[in-house]
């Protein structure tokens, strides 16, 4: 129960505005009926609870005929609140393109190979440390159709549910140093450079698996903090 929690409205700057020149598609989607901040009644202060699924759902690379193609990576996601407290039992879901930049999806009509040993999604619950780990591959970049030469940089889509429906977040995480990052309209739609940096994976050998997978970490900070400041 989160009745004593504070969830402040997102601000343009650390967050991407609904309407942004960097991402043309927002022009016909940005909500025009926007009111002030969301209310915070018991409706918004409650939220869904989740059951753990099989561990196999955290590996995207174990196909029926062998390992997926591409650079294997292990990504340790740690979910925190704004007080830096690990969030236990948070559902984290990821989805991504394969090593060739191809999605397992009917909308992706590009002529690029599918990988029968790669499953495009993973899901898991965070443990007592707020952590959940995924074994996957570094996805490929891909061109956005009819965009005049825009290529999405390698990225992993991520979805998380925290302690209430008000902490719900969907985002994308990126690989530091990729030359496509500064050219990406979706990443650059976040005005604050420090905020864009927070979407970069951090390489960490200790998160890897020897002779199998490179290690990366990512801290996902969900909205929400205690109404009474914590000690320390």
């Amino acid at each position: 129960m989160a009745d004593n929690r504070i969830y402040e409205p997102f601000q343009d700057g650390p967050q991407p505005p609904y309407l942004t020149k960097h991402y043309g598609r927002t022009a016909r989607m940005a909500p025009e009926g926007l009111l002030a901040a969301s209310p915070r009644t018991p409706t918004e202060l409650a939220g869904p609870k989740w059951q753990n699924g099989p561990d196999a759902e955290k590996s995207l690379v174990h196909g029926a005929k062998g390992l997926a193609l591409g650079q294997l990576i292990r990504v340790v996601v740690r979910v925190l609140d704004e007080d830096a407290r690990p969030q236990r039992g948070a559902l984290v879901e990821i989805w991504q393109a394969n090593a060739a930049g191809k999605y397992q999806h009917p909308v992706d009509q590009r002529d690029a190979p599918l990988d029968e040993n790669f499953r495009s999604w993973g899901r898991g619950l965070t443990d007592d440390q707020g952590e959940v780990d995924f074994l996957t591959i570094r996805p490929g970049a891909y061109p956005v159709p009819s965009s005049g030469g825009w290529w999405r940089p390698p990225h992993i889509h991520i979805s998380a549910y925290g302690d209430s429906i008000s902490s719900r977040l969907v985002s994308q995480i990126y690989f530091p140093g990729d030359p496509l990052n500064p050219l990406d309209g979706i990443l650059q739609s976040i005005p604050d450079v420090q905020a864009r940096e927070r979407l970069m994976l951090k390489h960490d050998p200790s998160a890897g698996i020897a002779e199998l997978a490179l290690g990366y970490r990512f801290d996902l900070v969900l909205r929400g903090r205690a109404a009474t400041p914590l000690e320390g």
Partner: peptide, 21 residues
């Protein structure tokens, strides 16, 4: 005390169906 800024949101994109539903 530590105070963290929430992770930025990014668009869902069109390819989420296998991942989320």
């Amino acid at each position: 005390m530590t105070r963290l800024t929430p992770t930025p949101s990014q668009t869902l994109g069109p390819f989420f169906a296998h991942g989320l539903l």
